[in-house]
């Protein structure tokens, strides 16, 4: 073989950006499974449509930028963005909601900034927030847990099959009767009912479940397991997620008064409801838009944890992971500036 001239180092780990991204995608499986079992096929239709749109948009953007399409699609970053947005959207989201969200995520938030590695904001969260602000009705219509749907005994397609679910997502089949099929989430209820004790809410609304809400607690547990797997595989360090979860729990513990009308819910409710675990282990761990050093990531995570609690408790939105992450994305360069590690030999 002809000898090549290459500068050192010559050895290299087998880990590649593509495989890291693929691992992240796989690590969402437990959480996705919990959501699917709990809410029906709507999460799967979200994810599948998101992936299709994301890859198409990514290919279009890359070809417009005159770059090799296959090379960029293979980095699997669009795949991860699509899965995360698909999970975040209400199940059975309409195709045009998904397409709009993916357009903002892939085109506006990523490629207009220069593509992978140059985006200051988490693309999936940009897509999500644009949708939440633009289409509040569609974005807050969350599916009811399947076990409650059966209790309500509604007629028609109350529990759509996979095929029917795609029909609903493409709006070829009308959404089943709103009242039985969709239902306020525990965090919605908490936001809307300031005058009731949490214990009262739990009695009135069966979807509260044991800790963070029916299905929600299992989904959060699933994302926690996926996150711990990624931590074990050294895809990222503990600093960001743990810092966020600790800050959120601390603030929840400080402001929790046992469940009065003003109380924001127990730390367990905050940890295992809404998008907490997804945010901690899959969103704020996006390296591109987060702080760089370990110290920086502790600050970054703590800021997100604090913002989540503040918005959930005093803001207008029931959940706030996306806002909190985007706000801290703004702060990441500043955090980086003040958290440079001390170089060897410098005092």
């Amino acid at each position: 073989m002809p000898l090549v001239q290459i500068t050192s180092p010559h050895a290299h780990t087998s880990q590649s950006t593509s495989s890291v991204m693929l691992l992240v995608a796989l690590a969402t499986l437990p959480g996705v499974a919990a959501l699917t079992i709990g809410f029906g096929w709507g999460t799967i239709t979200n994810i599948v449509l998101s992936i299709i749109f994301a890859l198409a948009l990514e290919a279009g953007a890359v070809s417009l930028r005159k770059q090799p399409i296959g090379f960029y699609l293979r980095d699997n970053s669009a795949l991860v963005t699509a899965i995360l947005l698909g999970i975040a959207l209400p199940p059975y989201a309409s195709w045009w909601i998904i397409l709009t969200g993916m357009f903002f995520a892939i085109i506006i938030a990523k490629h207009l900034y220069g593509g992978l590695g140059y985006n200051p904001f988490n693309p999936a969260m940009v897509g999500y927030v644009v949708l939440l602000i633009s289409f509040p009705i569609e974005m807050t219509r969350w599916a009811a847990p399947l076990e409650l749907v059966s209790e309500l005994d509604t007629s028609g397609v109350s529990k759509p099959t996979l095929i029917e679910s795609f029909g609903i997502a493409l709006r070829l089949i009308e959404l089943p009767a709103i009242d039985g099929f969709t239902m306020a989430t525990p965090l919605d209820l908490l936001r809307q009912n300031d005058a009731l004790m949490i214990s009262d809410l739990k009695q009135t609304y069966p979807q509260f479940g044991a800790q963070g809400g029916l299905v929600w607690e299992w989904a959060n547990l699933g994302f926690l397991i996926g996150g711990l797997f990624l931590l074990y595989r050294k895809i990222y360090t503990w600093h960001g997620p743990v810092s966020m979860l600790v800050t959120l729990s601390l603030l929840a513990a400080i402001f929790y008064d046992g469940g009065s009308s003003n109380s924001g819910g127990s730390p367990m409710l905050h940890l295992f409801s809404g998008a907490t675990m997804l945010g901690a282990w899959f969103i704020l761990t996006d390296p591109v838009s987060s702080a760089v050093s370990n110290k920086g990531r502790i600050i970054f995570g703590a800021g997100i944890g604090a913002l989540i609690f503040i918005i959930r408790q005093w803001g207008n939105y029931p959940d706030s992971v996306a806002f909190a992450v985007l706000l801290m994305n703004f702060a990441a360069p500043l955090i980086d500036h003040y958290t440079q590690p001390k170089t060897y030999g410098h005092s």
Binding site: T17, V20, G117, T237, V292, S293, N294
Partner: peptide, 11 residues
């Protein structure tokens, strides 16, 4: 490929 700022290098 693009730098995804994963920070493995800094570690």
């Amino acid at each position: 490929q693009a730098c995804i700022r994963c920070g493995l290098c800094a570690e």
